[in-house]
Design a protein around this nucleic acid. Sequence first.
DNA 1: CTGAAAGCGCTTACAG
DNA 2: CTGAAAGCGCTTACAG
Lengths: 376, 376
Amino acid sequence: MFSDTPAIGKSNAALHPAAAKRVSIKDIARLARVSHSTVSRALRESPLVNPETAEKIRRIASDRGFRASAVARSLATNRTNTIGVVVTSIDDPFVAEVVKGIEDEAILHDYSVFLANCHADPEREMKVVHSFEDRRVDGIVVTASRVGALYAPVLERMHIPIVLLNNQHPSQFAHSILIDNFEGSRQAVAHLVSLGHRRIAYIGDRFGHGSDSERFSGYRAALDEADILFQPDLVVHGDGKAEGGRHAMEKLLATRPHCTAVFCYNDMTAIGAYKTIRAHGLTVPRHLSLVGFDDLPLGLYMDPPLTTVRQPKQDMGRMAMQALLKLIAGTGAEQNLRVAGELMIRQSTAAPLEHASQENQTCHYSSAPKPGRRRK
Amino acid sequence: MFSDTPAIGKSNAALHPAAAKRVSIKDIARLARVSHSTVSRALRESPLVNPETAEKIRRIASDRGFRASAVARSLATNRTNTIGVVVTSIDDPFVAEVVKGIEDEAILHDYSVFLANCHADPEREMKVVHSFEDRRVDGIVVTASRVGALYAPVLERMHIPIVLLNNQHPSQFAHSILIDNFEGSRQAVAHLVSLGHRRIAYIGDRFGHGSDSERFSGYRAALDEADILFQPDLVVHGDGKAEGGRHAMEKLLATRPHCTAVFCYNDMTAIGAYKTIRAHGLTVPRHLSLVGFDDLPLGLYMDPPLTTVRQPKQDMGRMAMQALLKLIAGTGAEQNLRVAGELMIRQSTAAPLEHASQENQTCHYSSAPKPGRRRK
DNA sequence: CTGAAAGCGCTTACAG
DNA sequence: CTGAAAGCGCTTACAG
């Protein structure tokens, strides 16, 4: 029989000269002398096919290095087993860990992930989401979205579940994973209070940007709990990056009396603060205690290692994927998951100098200082 | 006409109850009273369609939020406009930057990128590559491949172009982008020599692992050029990570006489070395000069900032994508691109102490020390 | 400039 | 357990 020869590929190779002919399910069918339906079943481990036939088919397929086309399957099943992840920038250590969590979870469930940068540009973010729609991904996760709830109308017609991770747009969205900024910050500052600090500064992100206001609220709350008067001049703003932290710290060092501790919007801000502190010949934590937020690997290598609020980035990534999986399965409810941070106490925080030896470097604004420490 | 009503979606919605009916090219055709062929052409901006008709079709499509299925198109065209990137781990600052370069270049050419971790496990690496094959990606780039040339036979039948970036398998492969390890290391060490150092240590990766031997050769070459006798006890091995750097540095500090400078396999190794050096009450670069390799962002935040050999990671990513594009277009030649590193001189390197003030911390092994400096 | 037709490579009721 | 048939949503010669 002619149709039996190992010669593979139809004459349409002429149509796409560049593309090498790939063996298809039909080729395997011909070789195994069965219908392509049977091949399809055998390859998918359907119980509907005779075990011996199935084995034979699989052997032939494997011998030929045959791999069924996921794109053809997707067209037939209306599922791609694919998700899209849009990130601000992949070369951001925070994002990288989140993506790792997503990918690890995705692969467990036989999903592949598309990755796209949007450079924190809302327009690009929408563009990327649309390109994912074109690809018919089964779900999308967006980290640090700048669009957030504005998606709602677009999503309506897209029919693709989306979950937002640390949405930076100030509005609610049906499905999201969010770090508990308030509680994380409150604990960080409470830690400083418990060490005896009373003049505690806050270096925020750009004013009202991102999670700045939530973290600021946590800072305020901790102060209130300790009956420490809030001092507006102890609040300055950076830009969420080292550069901003450097400048903000300069401002802080220029105001008298000095603070004895600084809670930073995030680790990168703290990294910048270190630099300024060193430049002034001061030492952490001897002269100044420093706390960050995020727990980037970087903080571990600082001298001294940075006390910070850990965001379980990888877990958050996994959670996002799991939420997506539920939504895809149709068993997902609307929800905004709040993830707890964890205070990682390292060597950048200690009791203030004045505590150990009454130095004159700082003086008290707040009346009636509480007894040294305060424990929960 | 019945077929004219805006009612969209065929009755097959019953088959996939979960999947919401999507509007297809046929629905648009019905609304525009043209054939779906014409819709296809109009949407693809084919000159073969009447401008007015095209405009009308596009308007209708856009009103309905219609987005043509890339998967259907892929099946028809035998191109997915998709590439796969396999990385050891995405939460590695080196990898992240490379991926960014790839993605930026990909998006320019309307390509989407699949990302997959392989955890430096050759088996997983092959698995991931096969999953990419299933997805019919047009090309694949593998960073720090552990399989390398072993791919050859598999690739033969896969018919998917692959380019390797910093292949870690000690063998040649048709298409690769590689940093010039030898020359980068040679320059790094020559820099130390030029500062007056003569007892220069090398902390490698695990012996013979990765690019260790190439970087070691560069070290040797620089020594030879300066007529410095190679001292085996000045070569120790870490693991390419901070932990290994710490231990290796301990070993180095335990051998007498001390070295005055250390060239590290990479930045992470150097980061570990910093820690040990500080722990011994010594200071960089006063007591010891330190040079890394890679130029991770991290190095900038060290105290002092780390002198290192920069790998143009993003550029290398772009180059990999460009090479892939050529291969896909069929205009690619076999080639192994060597990329030049760049010595970034920062504050972790300086003249040795003995130079400034003859201290007794080190003594010379090599006979006939050359006159202090040596410039090219 | 337009439409009818064939085809891409699978899946899956349907009928043996 | 198996095969023939229809369909997934596009593209693209082919013939007007």
